[in-house]
């Protein structure tokens, strides 16, 4: 049976088709699910794609959090289903409190659009299971509010529970502890600011994102080619 991946589309999302393209190139079956849908239609994994959900009004993710589709996503996540938020999707997951902390404006108020190196600091998550510990992967970031922050208690928890899955090798945005991606306690909900779907082919400058996307598909039940 095909491995179905719900790719969430809010008004203002703009990375959903890139994500869908990569999902199908890896053998999964992407399904764009609009924000007003109250069902995930039997998806095996959920990817909240990047963009500017609801125009990022008030705060990125603040309004998206109340979209009808967030209810089934919450239940799916609570049942252990793999949920990944990329960029704006990460912001949505923190606003929905499925992940702790918040993404604030980049240090020096700079919009950052560049390739970055990320180090895989935990392979125990639905996004990094197929990668190697310490592996450095290269992919683009494209954000204004990607500066991860949280209380010192939360940070201590993330560190001691090995929940910082990706760190910037050269911190581009002021993120606390160089955090680029974190997971929840269940390790099935992951948020990251960089865009693995935009590093999915050598022609795009890197295909390092594939290992992360493959991990999501593996968590969704797709057999990974050796």
């Amino acid at each position: 049976m095909a491995t179905k991946v719900a790719v969430i589309q809010f008004p203002g999302t703009n990375c959903e088709f890139d994500v869908a393209e990569v999902v199908s190139s890896l053998g999964g079956e992407p399904q764009i699910v609009f924000h007003d849908d109250s069902s995930l239609h039997g998806a095996d994994a959920v990817i909240i794609a990047g963009g500017f959900a609801h125009g990022d009004y008030l705060r990125p993710g603040a309004i998206a959090r109340f979209s009808p589709v967030m209810e089934p996503i919450r239940s799916f996540a609570n049942d252990g289903g793999p949920v990944v938020g990329i960029c704006n999707g990460f912001q949505v997951l923190t606003e929905a409190r499925l992940l702790p902390g918040a993404l604030q404006k980049n240090a020096h108020l700079k919009f950052k659009c560049q390739m970055v190196d990320l180090r895989v600091d935990s392979t125990n998550s639905v996004l990094t299971s197929e990668a190697e510990l310490g592996q450095v992967v290269r992919m683009p970031i494209n954000h204004f509010e990607g500066n991860y922050t949280c209380s010192s208690e939360t940070l201590a928890e993330l560190q001691s529970e090995d929940r910082v899955v990706l760190r910037y090798v050269d911190n581009p945005n002021g993120s606390i502890d160089d955090i680029a991606g974190i997971c929840n306690e269940g390790r099935n909900v992951v948020g990251l600011m960089p865009h693995p779907e935009r590093a999915s082919h050598e022609l795009l400058g890197s295909n390092d994102g594939l290992v992360l996307m493959q991990s999501v598909l593996a968590a969704a039940g797709l057999a990974v080619p050796v």
Binding site: L58, A62, F66, T94, E95, P100, G101, A102, T149, C150
Partner: peptide
């Protein structure tokens, strides 16, 4: 619940 994000 909405107008502010108490984390920041």
């Amino acid at each position: 619940q909405f107008l502010s994000n108490p984390v920041i």
